[in-house]
């Protein structure tokens, strides 16, 4: 179970990962539309109130492209035997933790809870924190942190298996690659 959740790349073949990752990416696009969730960046999950199928698909494709564009050359540099299929599968699987945030925005629930907070951000003293709102913020924050940690663990393990990454130098390169992939995804999203 631990391997399945945190390091499926160690055990499952590229075909199994591609099939599962592909199905999950497609399902992710459909559910992102149904729950109005934006995956607008490699590491991002935001709640909206009007996400079209086209927007969800573009965001998903850009996230995949950004990960492959950055992690494949870095992987090749670390180990010339790095395969494109392993990095591509990594880009599909790594988004799965983010999909667990989507139920929070069924019927735009999370959006309507956070929207008043975001509108009042310039004047935070006017925000009325009810017990319900605080509970919502605590639960969402904890879930978001768990999802983020899971995503990073998956990304690290998948990249480690794909490249046989070792040592501090490689870990620094991996860390920089995450930041660059996030920037690349944000830049690409500006064009669509």
């Amino acid at each position: 179970m631990k391997t399945l959740l945190f390091n499926p790349f160690k055990k499952y073949s590229e075909r199994q990962l591609l099939l599962f990752g592909g199905i999950m990416a497609f399902a992710g696009i459909v559910f992102a539309t149904l729950t109005n969730t934006h995956f607008d960046g490699v590491l991002d999950t935001h709640f909206g109130k009007d996400v079209s199928l086209k927007t969800a698909a573009i965001q998903s494709i850009i996230n995949i492209v950004s990960i492959v564009l950055v992690f494949y050359p870095v992987g090749k540099w670390i180990n010339s035997k790095t395969r494109l299929i392993d990095i591509f599968n990594l880009s599909l699987i790594v988004k799965i933790p983010g999909y667990f945030m989507m139920p929070l925005n069924i019927n735009n629930w999370a959006y309507f809870k956070t929207e008043p907070l975001l509108s009042a951000i310039s004047n935070p003293f006017n925000i009325q924190f009810t017990q319900e709102l605080l509970l919502f913020l605590i639960i969402t924050s904890v879930l978001a942190m768990l999802v983020f940690v899971w995503l990073i663990v998956l990304l690290y393990n998948g990249f480690k298996v794909a490249t046989n990454l070792k040592g501090t130098k490689h870990i620094i390169m991996f860390t920089l690659a995450i930041i660059v992939a996030e920037i690349v995804s944000k830049v690409l999203l500006m064009f669509f």
Binding site: F9, K10, K11, Y12, S13, E14, L17, K81, R83, D86, V161, A162, N164
Partner: peptide
Amino acid sequence: NMSYPTIRN
């Protein structure tokens, strides 16, 4: 019962 890159590594 392992993936190809795991064995290659």
